[in-house]
Design a protein around this nucleic acid. Structure first.
Lengths: 339, 339
DNA sequence: ATGAAAGCGCTAACAT
DNA sequence: ATGTTAGCGCTTTCAT
């Protein structure tokens, strides 16, 4: 109470309650056999002094730290944050705290952070990233389990959790088909991105199931609005009768929407539009609001964290790649044609 | 080496090198007087076994933990992340690790996290938020220093670091004046937000200095594109001759840009446009790319962290509010009129 | 130049 | 029912 800037130790509580340290410990943890009166006296003293057991000291003894490291390369945070939150959900429930480390895509920094985390005896590490492109493993034979979330290790013995981009593409395709569109174009990001290729594959496969093909070849470009505008231009010029466009990202969809409107196409009456990411400010700000594929980033983080917890708990560590299903978010850009 | 899943202790290193624990410690820390040969033997053993000194044990002894807590209410992350990165910069340099806690705006959760952080003996706490609205103090008389970044405590004895919104508004105003516009309108967020009011004040004050007033009253609405569209509509209807619009956010500016274009106004030739936030995907995706005010969020985090470090180091804790200057980012939406 | 021992805050096993 | 002791991994006196 006197010096609020110093943490209170159990020794002080014991002294205040007039018992030994061991007794105080038992009283506070409900262990051992104590008289109710004693227990009450200790509890009261602890309360009065504002005692908070030192987690580190407890951990030192238990041989645990109840911490994990979260290493992210996605400084920008748009993808990592929801993943982190999901992971935090799962970990927080287990009283595990999370060390945040942002590598800024710098391998030196990353190495440095990993070392620091290991020195702090984290019990596990989650690696997250921007998009899902494969990346180098942070190292094998580490003394703690590692899971990759929203990024993928090139090492097959590592365990990664990523969104089901193929399924997401299929989801968009089936929805467009179900709402009566069959001439469907595709404008997406750079072909070098697996995510772009997988989403395109999901679309083409689902169309093939219905005996259809995409209207024109999928247009690979950039993850930008500007490319969306250009892509739509190319698509409309070649296929003026296109009934729907599935876009590889919400930003691209925004660009596509703009070009469509300028060309006098009404969304969704003339052309329906589906985005990818469910980046709310983008999707909601679109005119009309954008139907889009949500990758369930929180779920990805949660699943990754749960696997990490299991591994920490001694379960045989998982390996390979686990995909989490996407989910379609319906907004006005794909309202069924009022016919 | 044998069991990679267990961390190596100094005891094992000492045993391997055939010295006592104390000697091993000295050898590894360059302390004390040892023969070079001994030092080398210990170093080699440590290297071979993959020894990493346990930061927690070191801290237990030193009475320090070299950790701070970062509590954020901005689940969405758009504002918090850059602040975090700035803070991490400053802290990481000091070998301090950061515990991440997202409260999801839930006071119970927040309380819970604070308790957990204190139990972990963090040496300080940074509280960040969405926008800069004042919020309740996380508590006075806490055993560790606290700083608020990108949010403000209602308790004046707390210390907060926030952007200079007034200065940001003035920056936009002066830039528009300097590029030859004098009929300047303002479309911004809800009046209940201090940030909106301060930005408007910065604008009106700067215009007043030049003997001018805003074109029409500032239009307070929402922080959305939709409101930007509506606001521009209202503004254009009342003042068709407006030469520039300063917007309270980039999202609003996007909406304004759309309405302007639809009404046949060319940006920046007919009407110049300035946003606020420098939210890159929004600002760059705008047509034309948007001149906007950047709040230097990273700097805010850095300054907050530096003050925290100083307080941890024993400096008298700062109090009150510190503002960090904004910075204008020039893009094409305000190119000088080609006359 | 090296080793032995104490102690950081706490818990658990063992004495009393 | 309560107190005492050892020990988690490490650093730092103080002996030797």
């Amino acid at each position: 109470m006197s010096d609020p800037s110093r943490a209170v130790t159990i020794r002080e509580v014991a002294a205040a309650a007039g018992v030994s340290i061991g007794t105080a410990s038992k009283a506070l943890n409900g262990r051992g056999k104590l008289r109710d009166e004693t227990r009450a006296r200790v509890t009261a003293a602890a309360e009065r002094l504002g005692f908070r057991p030192n987690t580190l000291a407890q951990g030192l003894l238990a041989g645990r730290t109840y911490t994990v490291g979260l290493v992210t390369c996605d400084s920008f945070g748009r993808f990592s944050i929801p993943v982190m939150l999901g992971a935090e959900d799962a970990l927080g429930a287990g009283q595990i705290s999370v060390f945040m480390c942002d590598t800024r895509d710098d391998p030196i920094r990353e190495r440095h952070y990993i070392e620091r985390l290991l020195a702090r005896r984290v019990e596990g590490i989650i690696v997250t990233g921007r998009r899902t492109e494969p990346r180098q493993s942070i190292g094998t034979g580490l003394p703690v389990p590692v899971v990759y979330a929203m990024t993928q290790s090139t090492d097959e013995s590592d365990f990664s959790v990523i969104p089901d981009d193929v399924g997401g593409g299929a989801l968009a395709a089936r929805h467009l088909l179900a709402t009566g569109r069959s001439r469907i174009g595709h404008v997406t990001g750079p072909q070098r991105f697996e995510a772009a290729r997988r989403r395109a594959r999901g679309l083409t496969d689902a169309l093939a199931e219905a005996g259809l093909r995409t209207t024109g070849e999928p247009l690979f470009g950039e993850w930008t609005e500007e490319w969306g505008r250009q892509g739509a231009d190319i698509l409309l010029r070649a296929h003026p009768d296109v009934e729907a466009v599935f876009c590889g990202s919400d930003q691209i969809a925004r660009g596509v929407a703009e070009t469509l409107r300028e060309r006098g196409k009404v969304i969704p009456d003339d052309v329906a539009l589906v985005g990818f990411d469910n980046w709310e400010p983008m999707a909601r700000g679109c005119r009309p609001p954008l139907t889009t594929v949500d990758m369930n980033l929180g779920e990805i983080g949660r699943v990754a964290a749960e696997h990490l917890l299991a591994a920490i708990g001694g379960a045989p560590p998982a390996r390979g790649v686990l995909t989490v299903p996407c989910r379609l978010v319906l907004r006005e850009s794909t309202r069924a044609n009022p016919l």
